[in-house]
Amino acid sequence: MRLKPGIAVATYLTMLLACLNWQSVHSGELSKPSGKVLLTITGNIENTNAPASVELDIEMLEQLENTSFVTRTPWTEGPTKFTGVRINHLLEFVGAKSSHFRANAIDKYWNDLTDMDFDKIPAIVAYKINDKYMRVRDLGPLWLIFPFDDFPETDNEKHKTASVWQLIEITVH
């Protein structure tokens, strides 16, 4: 019986994929992004999908459990709805060994977020504002934002300077 080369290749690829998949489960290898990379997470993390980092596109972000809240901010007009991924979910997803990290923005702004209880405060990396994706000129595409209205203890300069818009990279300490 002659084996068709197409089937053989398909079988091989399937086995290889299965193997890779198995490997990813056990060595913290995450799936790779297919679209434009919006966020890169580096530093003290266990899981990766790129050299020493996790790269995320909008599809991957939207696959993660989303959280949304409405709040007023000094940079928006009136109550605004933000939708995105909770910081603690994101850190868990990349297997971060610490909850202290630096958030970097496209415009070179950065802020170190330390001593913040993300289990209590549902701060998010927002990808939608009022249910619409953000352009860079709208302070997007990603915006680290706190629920200032629901958690009055975050309504201060410390949390406002930590609200990094045009978020592009997170470095876990």
């Binding site: 928006t76 496209i106 415009d107 709208d138």
Partner: peptide, 17 residues
């Protein structure tokens, strides 16, 4: 292009703040 967008964003924020 990105820098143009970033400039746009900062002008918007300054307008609001």
């Amino acid at each position: 292009q990105t820098d143009f967008e970033v400039f746009w964003a900062s002008v918007t924020v300054f307008n609001l703040r």
